[in-house]
Nucleic acid binder design. Structure first.
Lengths: 154, 154
DNA sequence: TTACCTATATATAACGC
DNA sequence: TGCGTTATATATAGGTA
């Protein structure tokens, strides 16, 4: 898109490469943002600029949350097994604790909002699951998940 | 882009939301791919579809590699959790004496662990849900990735 | 790097199968 | 759901300040 059709291969000119990165990075983040809002989904985007700087983006749920969701999937659903999974998870949890603490400091009420948000997710998930299992009733169910979240209730 | 200018807010119609996701997901991945090649950078993109399916993309280096690079940055370079952590922590400790959030803040670790635990349950529930919905679907395969970039080739 | 300015190249919303 | 078509909306290459 531009005065000329650009071939998709590494831009050798140093300045042009940096400039193009700046422009397209913004475009990509905008698109990611729009997708996350329009479709109400979790998304995380990590980029390292040509000058090695981190350019992160995530929707409603923070990079750490999305990465944890990724790591907590079964290897099967994720597609590939992760090597240092446990280590990665603990690292991410540390980061998340730190940023959560910062958030809590800045806005003590955020904690309660967080809890409410999570509970909403649980309810929504439970309802969906119930509906889905309802329709599958005539088939053998994998596992009784409906009893999993009793402890989570207020 | 389209016959009508679309407001950036959650698409409530279920079908439209899914359709829009499919289209924009492909567009976003294509853009991410082009950026990674043109600017020769590391990039990782994780999306969870409205039906909770993982849609991953990464350039030359695989999601796990990018994740590691992210985690291996210094807290400072990563930027997010806040640079003056020492200050915030001491601030936190003082606050816990004064506010009625005291009990919760006194042991943020325990609370966060609780939250992590609950989130794991959510992940598990979502996966279970995906499996159930999978069975209710006709075409379980995600978009054929290999067809995405045909036009980009010289 | 960043901002703004076109001319073009792309993406995509609504529709039809 | 998945595709192709078409009319519009956007993104952006190249240039300039």
């Amino acid at each position: 898109m531009g005065r000329v059709k650009l071939a998709i291969k590494r831009i050798e000119n140093n300045t042009n490469r940096h400039v193009t990165f700046s422009k397209r990075r913004n475009g990509l983040i905008k698109k990611a943002y729009e997708l996350s809002v329009l479709c109400d989904i979790d998304i995380a985007l990590l980029m390292f600029s040509p000058s090695r700087r981190l350019c992160p983006f995530s929707g409603r749920h923070g990079v750490e949350d999305v990465l944890l969701r990724y790591l907590n999937m079964s290897d099967n659903d994720r597609g590939e097994p992760i090597q240092n999974r446990e280590y990665l998870i603990s690292m991410l949890q540390r980061l998340k604790r730190e940023s959560d603490m910062a958030t809590q400091l800045a806005n003590p009420g955020a904690l309660n909002e967080k809890i409410e948000e999570i509970q909403k997710e649980i309810y929504a998930c439970q309802q969906q699951l119930q509906i889905s299992e309802e329709r599958l009733r005539y088939k053998p169910r994998p596992a009784p998940f409906s009893t999993l979240f009793v402890r989570s209730r207020p």
